[in-house]
Computed example of a mutant assay.
Amino acid sequence: MSRKDYFNDDAAPKANSVVPSVTAVVRNTDGLLLLIHKTDNDLWALPGGGHDIGESIAETVAREVMEETGISVSVDGISGLYTDPRHVMAYDDGEVRQQFSICFRAHPVGGSIRTSDESKEVRWVSPTDLDELDIHPSMRLRIAHGLDLSRTAPYIG
């Protein structure tokens, strides 16, 4: 299913759903960041996805990162809560979802990189190389907050 992101766009369609979701800022011991090249919008992003009934939010993070990247992670904490009603995602099935995402910091504990139906490429990226990748502004914000270890409280916005 394809998707188009609207961010602070007056021409955006009105949201008709909200789905709690997660993203994860995963860094390895070399300081590299785990990113996926998404199949639905052709952009680079943090791994993540929707929260399922019957799992804790930390289990959602671990499941989504594993599903999309092949990497097992342990959650370290929350770096931000993103609920901006001016960020919506329009899917080709008619769903227009308002953003509701909790971004976590996590570290790898096993696994090996692989792609999935949602990720056509998975890569460990140096934070200094992020400008070379096509990343949505809302995802760049999450990445910046997740990489800023001087932040003692999560971003809420």
Score class of each variant (00 low, 15 high):
L130M: 09
I71D: 09
V25H: 01
V61T: 03
N28V: 01
D84R: 08
G70C: 10
I102A: 11
T23W: 00
V122N: 00
S72E: 15
V26G: 06
M1P: 12
L149N: 12
S74Q: 14
G49F: 04
V96W: 11
Q99T: 07
R105D: 08
D40R: 12
S56Y: 02
T128L: 06
V18I: 15
L147Q: 07
V19F: 10
D30G: 06
I156K: 01
I57W: 04
I78R: 04
S2P: 13
L141P: 01
H51T: 12
D9H: 11
N8C: 10
A90C: 07
N8L: 10
S116A: 07
G70N: 09
N8A: 13
P20W: 06
D76R: 10
P13C: 14
I57K: 02
V61W: 02
V22I: 15
I143Y: 01
D117A: 12
T83S: 04
K14P: 07
I36T: 15
S116T: 05
D131I: 07
P85S: 13
R114W: 03
L46G: 01
E121V: 05
K120E: 09
A15W: 14
S56W: 07
M66I: 07
P108K: 03
S112R: 09
T69E: 05
F100Q: 09
V125C: 03
V19M: 10
P154K: 04
P154R: 00
E118G: 12
R105W: 07
P85F: 02
S126A: 12
G146Y: 03
A144E: 15
V22P: 07
G146M: 03
Q99W: 04
D92C: 06
T60Q: 03
L141Q: 14
W124E: 01
P137H: 05
E121L: 10
S2C: 09
T83L: 07
M66C: 06
E132D: 15
L43K: 14
T115H: 01
V65N: 01
K120Q: 09
V22Q: 10
G157N: 04
A24C: 08
L133W: 01
S101T: 07
E59L: 06
S101L: 05
Y91T: 04
D30C: 06
V75D: 06
G50Y: 04
E132V: 09
R97Q: 15
I57C: 00
D10T: 15
R142P: 00
Y155P: 04
S79Q: 09
P85K: 03
S56P: 05
R123I: 08
G157A: 06
I143E: 04
I53D: 15
I53N: 09
I143P: 00
I53Y: 10
W44Q: 05
A153N: 03
S17A: 15
T128R: 13
I78L: 04
E118T: 08
G146R: 03
G111L: 04
S56M: 04
P13R: 14
Q98F: 10
L33S: 04
N41S: 12
H107W: 03
I53V: 12
Y6F: 15
T29E: 15
A58E: 15
L149H: 13
V109N: 08
G77P: 08
